[in-house]
Design a protein around this nucleic acid. Structure first.
Lengths: 237, 237
DNA sequence: CGCGTTCTTGACTAGAATCAATGCATGTGG
DNA sequence: CCACATGCATTGATTCTAGTCAAGAACGCG
């Protein structure tokens, strides 16, 4: 690896929540046992139910985490971008991956195997604690989405999903906030526990109201505030 | 604390997943910084959105973990019994509890504060790793339930919930497996993301088919196999 | 330009929520 | 021990959200 790349990676790691407050030497020790790993668009980092042998921190690109039901329905659990870690939890628990990780664009990541990770964590307990914290946040989020799914209407869930995506991967344009991500109606349905038809109807409605503009696998949010009103079920003024 | 109690606690901890493979000295160190904690039926260990200051391992009794939506709907996330740990995740991430923990029967627990826990974990990385593993399992389960909620019908979800509860707190009787837990239709609804009316209708149906017998806050499963068939959507033979 | 996706829209249906009335247990106090 | 209050459970009638199915339009790519 080139020196400049190493420096970039160190820089990225230091900004990644997993390595928060880690010293320079810890970062270097971690990076030393990491492998550079590239995955092309459409390829998988790992599949559901495979034994978990490694965890990854994304350097560049975007990854979709999804679960497949025995009946063949897909459920999208999360999208991830640079700095995010995948599989941290399971790589340490010696089980199988509970979901599949697919690159939705060409993706570069750092990869840690099981043994090195364990050694690293035992040596630097801070990393294990950070891992726990990180997982805590993810857990927290999943619980909230579980609650949403149990108690809220589809329209609110879709509104929330869009706002979340906007925060994660939104890109300001003069039109509004563009979701910088190939995102089909099907995908949105799988994220919110509904069908592509219902999503289509909802988006059409919002487009009529001027809240968003849509295209094939493209959505721009013109009035984030309007979506917030729907997501939070506020009275319209 | 009496010596016999200490011995019991050590015994319990050694069987608790959090302290799996821990040495006797680790257990003793952990127990030394723990506090005995009792909560009467109907009282709370902690409430949602309070700052997380401690985690607990249940010694005796049963605890219901639930979330309250801004609109006032309640969602039951989990029931816990002896040996289970609550708040492990958040107590280490210095945030707030994402849910409330209510004792559904008089409950005895061990309690660890934030500082001692951190020190313990830094000293014995194994505990942090175990914590991670534990959370991984819980995470895994929550993901599965999220997927269920997104893709499955109410009847299947209720069937699964009953089977889960039977595994956790079931008690064999000559009638079948009794759910040893005051469990109202409302509770079941909040566990499965539906209403008490729908639950009532479903249970009535199953009772007609001879799968279960019900009473006020009491359910006995006569034909677990029948429920499995519904839960897994197997063809009936 | 033709082809495969993705998206839209309409008609219909079904599953489940909501509302309302009533029936049962359980525990309480006279 | 009975009358009563309270909370839990059942059931029916109705409504409505969202799923299903079908047909065709729009888009982007080779």
């Amino acid at each position: 690896m080139q020196a400049s790349t190493v420096r970039e990676h160190l820089e990225l790691l230091s900004r990644s929540p997993l390595f928060r407050d880690a010293s320079q030497s810890e970062l270097e020790a971690a990076l030393k046992v990491a492998r550079h790993y590239e995955v092309a668009r459409g390829e998988f980092f790992f599949h559901q139910d495979e034994p978990a042998v490694a965890f990854y921190v994304i350097v560049e690109g975007q990854v979709r985490l999804s679960q497949l039901t025995p009946e063949g329905h897909q459920v999208i659990i999360h999208f991830m971008g640079p700095g995010d870690g995948m599989g941290i939890i399971v790589a340490l628990s010696n089980t199988t991956y509970p979901l599949s990780a697919e690159a939705v664009s060409d993706t570069v990541a750092l990869r840690w195997g099981y043994e090195p990770t364990i050694r690293l964590m035992e040596q630097y307990p801070r990393l294990a604690l950070n891992g726990l914290r990180l997982v805590a946040g993810r857990f927290h989020e999943l619980q909230n989405r579980y609650r949403e799914l149990a108690t809220e209407r589809v329209e609110r869930r879709v509104a929330r999903a869009l706002l979340r995506l906007a925060r994660q991967t939104g890109k300001r344009t003069e039109e509004g906030v563009l979701l910088n991500l190939a995102l089909s109606r099907q995908d949105l349905g799988e994220m919110t526990g509904t069908t592509l038809y219902t999503v289509s109807r909802i988006l059409s409605g919002w487009e009529q109201d001027g809240l968003i503009t849509t295209g094939r696998e493209r959505i721009t949010i013109r009035e984030p505030h309007g979506l917030v009103i729907i997501a939070e079920d506020l009275p319209l003024d």
